[in-house]
């Protein structure tokens, strides 16, 4: 389930929470928790596992389950999720594309790359393509300044982009 627009947060709980049940994730989570002297410390890595396993975003149910699992207040989990840009509290496309917008990339044409992607997919940065395939965001410095301008597609990285090569890269990936 993807969407091109932000979902009213009050409606999020009505969306399906896809992916494995929390019990099925425990096997992966318990050893992570064991790395820390306090359960609460495992919050970031646990959120990562849950987000990856469950369609790339954190459904309200996931938030509740994580809070319960780590015995931390739900408001704390919400506070953490909304603090870090890579945790998503909204549904995202199948792949998340991050185009770096910071200085080293801007100096070498990042703005033109973003313009091209917006024009090609007919969405604003931050939006999701109509086919639900990509959520395309801007990001602050990705630490790939030696290949500026650059973007990441989940774990892939692509550098020395031109407006054309950026579009071609996204369109050219296997569906």
């Amino acid at each position: 389930m993807t969407t091109t627009k932000r979902v009213d947060p009050a409606e999020l709980a009505k969306l399906p929470c896809t992916g494995p049940s929390f019990d099925d994730l425990r096997g992966k989570l318990d050893p992570i928790v064991a790395r820390y002297p306090q359960r609460a410390a495992a919050l970031l890595p646990v959120l990562w596992v849950v987000q990856r396993a469950r369609a790339g975003w954190l459904h309200p149910k996931s938030i509740r389950e994580v809070a319960e699992y780590l015995a931390v207040p739900q408001a704390h989990v919400e506070g953490v999720i909304t603090f870090y840009t890579m945790f998503k509290d909204q549904p995202v496309g199948r792949d998340v594309v991050v185009v770096c917008k910071t200085l080293s990339c801007r100096l070498r044409g990042a703005q033109e790359v973003m313009d091209a992607l917006e024009d090609h997919f007919g969405i604003d940065m931050g939006g999701t393509t109509k086919d639900g395939r990509y959520t395309i965001e801007t990001g602050e410095c990705l630490g790939l300044c030696d290949m500026a301008p650059c973007m990441t597609i989940d774990e892939e990285r692509h550098g020395n982009l031109t407006p054309e090569s950026a579009v071609k890269t996204l369109e050219g990936r296997p569906r």
Binding site: D8, P9, R64, P73, Q74, A75, H76, T82
Partner: peptide, 26 residues
């Protein structure tokens, strides 16, 4: 701990859960 800071920087506000009103919190 029903409430916490949510979001970041100048967008920070006080909240509890996605879309939750004060009443929906603990």
């Amino acid at each position: 701990s029903a409430i916490d800071f949510v979001r970041r920087g100048v967008h920070t506000t006080i909240g509890s859960a996605p879309g939750a009103k004060w009443m929906d919190s603990d």
